[in-house]
Amino acid sequence: MSSSDAAFEAEYSSARSTLSAQLAAVLALGVLLLAVLGVLQGYLARSFRRILNPGVLAATVCTLIAVILGSQMLSASADHLRVARHDAFDSVVALSRAIAYDANADESRYLLDPRRRDRYEESFLAKSQQLYGLKGATLSTYDDELAATWQAYRAGHRDLRFTGEFRRELDNITFPGERTAAERTVDTYAVYQRDDRRIRELPAADKEREAVAFCMDWAPGTSNAHFGAWMATLDQVVGIDRGQFTFSVEAGRSAVNGLLPWAGGLPCAAMVLAASGLRPRPAEFRQRSASRASSRSRERWTRRRVVSLMAWAS
């Protein structure tokens, strides 16, 4: 799971960087296009003595909407990606079953291999600390410290005396129903931990058979039954996060599919509108130029005529 999490984090970081670069490019290009259209509108107003060119104005509106929609699409995609990665997937990683099953296996090995009991006891404690970390705790003190710190946390959610994967999940509560399910998971975990102490106490009292039965049976009230209850509550939390992960992925795709055609089509429409708005202007410019040339020609003819009349009169 850790290797998959690292690979996912690398992909996530790359995708976030790409989205940020695309958003910056859309904003920069949009501002540039709007500035060009604004300058063009001003030039046409001065040259042809008109307040606004309808085609260029429509192109400006299309460009502005395209920038807004493109920015909204990229921002929504980045937000859904963050929710999927950190709010949902981080919790799935924190609540991986692997550590729990390894700890349960160490508990069984403790009974089946008496010569290595110290090793399996240390391994079980190490995995317990990974899940619900209590600094300096031993198996003999773990239960009391777990109960005290968990009670303090439930009172205000601010107690910082425990760490581990459960803490990682509890600090990442995001979705409806997630906190209740996560807290129930810790409650069932505490029951399983208390069962472990009984499993270790029974062999010390020469009750190996009772210890094996309590550890490996699935009857109600046994350690495996409580382990199953713990896994069931854990699955409830993971189910909530997986559901939200799927929802965020689908929402991100929906945002892209819904806005991309508009964000891509509007710039094309802007080009067509700008071209249609500018199309009559060259003919109008030539007509104005011809009119000015004709006017200058008449003025020259009139001056020559006046000069001729004055010469004849003199």
Rank of each mutant, 00 (worst) to 15 (best):
R209L: 12
T185K: 02
S108F: 06
D143I: 03
T163D: 11
A204R: 15
F162M: 02
K207E: 11
R179K: 15
F162D: 00
E121T: 10
F124A: 14
A211W: 03
E208L: 15
R115A: 15
D159H: 06
T188H: 09
Q129Y: 06
L111G: 08
D159L: 00
E121F: 02
E121N: 12
D113K: 10
R158G: 11
R184P: 02
R197E: 12
A155Y: 01
K135S: 14
E121M: 12
D113V: 14
L134W: 02
K135H: 11
A137N: 05
F175W: 11
F162S: 01
Y142N: 03
A152Y: 00
A182F: 04
S140P: 01
Y132D: 01
Y192K: 08
L131F: 10
A182C: 05
I173W: 10
L112E: 14
Q129F: 05
F175Y: 15
T180M: 06
R194I: 01
R116W: 09
L139I: 10
G177E: 07
T180G: 15
G156M: 02
E165F: 03
Y153D: 00
Y110C: 00
D159Q: 04
D171Q: 12
L202H: 07
T149I: 00
Y192G: 00
E121Y: 05
R167Q: 10
G136T: 09
L131E: 06
E208G: 00
D196I: 14
R184F: 08
L139F: 08
T180L: 13
A205I: 03
E165K: 13
G156V: 01
L160T: 11
S108P: 01
F166Q: 02
E183C: 04
F124E: 10
A148S: 09
R119E: 15
L170W: 06
R168W: 07
R209Q: 14
A152P: 01
E178W: 04
K127W: 05
E178S: 11
Y132K: 00
A181L: 07
L111A: 08
S123I: 04
R200I: 06
R184Y: 07
A182I: 03
G177S: 08
A211Q: 04
Q130S: 11
Q130G: 13
R116H: 14
R194Y: 03
S140D: 15
L202E: 07
P176R: 03
S140R: 11
A205E: 12
P114T: 08
G133H: 04
H157T: 07
K127F: 02
D187C: 09
K135Y: 06
Y132E: 00
Q151C: 00
R184N: 12
G136D: 11
L112C: 03
I199Q: 09
F162A: 00
E201A: 15
D206A: 12
G136P: 05
A137V: 00
